[in-house]
Structures are given as C-alpha cells and as structure tokens.
Amino acid sequence: MTAETIIQSLASGLLMGLLYGLIAVGLALIFGLMDVVNFAHGEFLMIAMYVTFFLFAFFAIDPLLSAPLVAAALFVFGAVVYLLIVRFAVRAKANAGMVQIFSTFGLAIVMRGLAQYFFTPDYRSVTNSWLGGKTVSVAGIFLPVPQLVGALLAIAAFGALYLFINRTDFGRALEATREDAGAVALVGIDKNKVFALGWGLGAALVGLSGAVMAIFFYIYPDVGASFALIAYVTVALGGFGSVFGAFAGGILVGLVEATTALILPPSLKSVGIYAVYLLVVFIRPRGLFGSM
C-alpha cells in the first residue's frame, strides 16, 4: 500500500463523506425542529433519484440542470408528508416515540411498494449525462467528477443553509419554533406552517443529493435502504439536531469508510462506520455536537 493509494482513497472518501452529509442534513434539520426521526428518509432519496431519472429519460434534462427541479418536487412532497401523516403522529397521546417511528416506517414500506408497482424493480441508470463517468486529475490524484460536483454542491448547500437559518425571517421562525413550539404561537407564528416548511426544506435537501447520486448510482426501489442507515449514523454521530454535526458526521463517515476499505475486505467496509459510531456514543452519549 503506497502513500499514493492512501491519499487517493482518503480523497474519494472525503468527497463521498460530503455527499453523505448532504443526504443526512435533512434528517438533522427535521429532528432539530421537532424531535422526529423520519424513518422514510432513504425512500425520500429513492424518489429523488427516480424523479431525476425520469426527467432525464423523458425530457433529456441533465441531472445537473434538473437538481433544482428535483429539490422543488421533493419540497412539495416533504410538506405533504408532514400535513398528511406526521402532523397526526406527533399528536399521539400514547407511545409518541413509537408512533413516529412506525408511521414513518410504514410510509417507507408503502413508498417502496409504489415504486415497485409503477417503476418495476428493474435497475435503472442515467447514462451519458454530462458528468457521468468523467474524472479529473488534481496533483496526481484522480477524482470522479460527479462526486466532486456533489461535494462542492454539499458545501454550497451547507453554506446557504447556515445563512438561511441565521439571516432570514423564516430561518429565525424555524429557530424560535425549535426552541419553544408553544410560545411562538404568542408572537403569531403558525407552528404547523413552520413544521410543514421545515419538512419541505429537509426533503428538498435530500432532493438535491438524490439528483447527484442518480448520476453515478443505480436506481431501484430499495436503493434508499442502503443509504438510510448511513444517514441515521451520520446524524447521530454529529449529534441529533445539529445541522453542523451532520456536516462533520458526513465527512467522518466518508473518511472512516475509505480507511476501512483499505484495511478490511470490501464487504466489511460498513463495519468501520458502525464501530466508530459505537465508539463515539459510548464516550459521548449525545454525539459530537449534539445537545442533550
């Protein structure tokens, strides 16, 4: 194993990690806002990938251009899911935690079933997109262009999200609602509206990452499951509710995954991620940047 291989795989790990962060941040945002874990998060990603695929297949819109459209579609979808399901789940008087887990989990199963029904279980892929299959060489290190663009997009999205939360009225309303959902009603903020917009925003971020993922990953009804667990681990590693934590958690997960793949057989690469999660929470039970 040469130094070059190590640098090469750490670099691709870093890019993948930033993408993991982008996939996970919607989850962190929603949890921070209302303490709900969306167990259909992977299926949101799956839908985003299919939307990207169909825009490409039917209208020849390249994923790079359709990303904002996919994000917009997912925004609407996220808000609708809140209004139709989650709004009622958080009102449950008994076993609130269980109801949230299983209602969103039931949604995940329904979404997978619908995808199988309408899109068939076949594997799809976006072929011949502008970025697909291309690599660039930076100082002797080869980087895949889709992942590189995805990573840059992730950094931009995190920057925009930071400004959005801290500098806009809606961002402040979001912060205020997460602080005290009861008190905001006194200053005229409609809690339900903020929650619906929060779900929309969280889903839109998944939409963005889905558009990028569709460039270099196969698309099939169960695709979300493989990324969902990584997303939960990413969010928990960073600390539930911390948007910055999801960013840092994503980078850590990407680097650990790349390192594990160097040491252990490829089929065991996820063991490294899981082991690091356990190690971190055993030492810090609230993740790296979470508040209890």
């Binding site: 449950a92 209602s103 039931g106 199963i109 329904v110 079933g113 619908l114 029904y117 068939t120």
Partner: peptide, 22 residues
C-alpha cells in the same frame, strides 16, 4: 412481484399506528 403487498402492509402500519397509538 409488483409490490401491492407492500402497499397494503405499509398502509396498515400507518393506519393502525395513527389511529390506535396504544
């Protein structure tokens, strides 16, 4: 193989967990 069983099954889980949390 078209996932109708999943739709029914998942729908039932949502319905019961929302309607009868206890």
């Amino acid at each position: 193989g078209r996932g109708v069983d999943l739709i029914v099954y998942g729908g039932l889980i949502i319905a019961i967990s929302l309607a009868r949390p206890q």
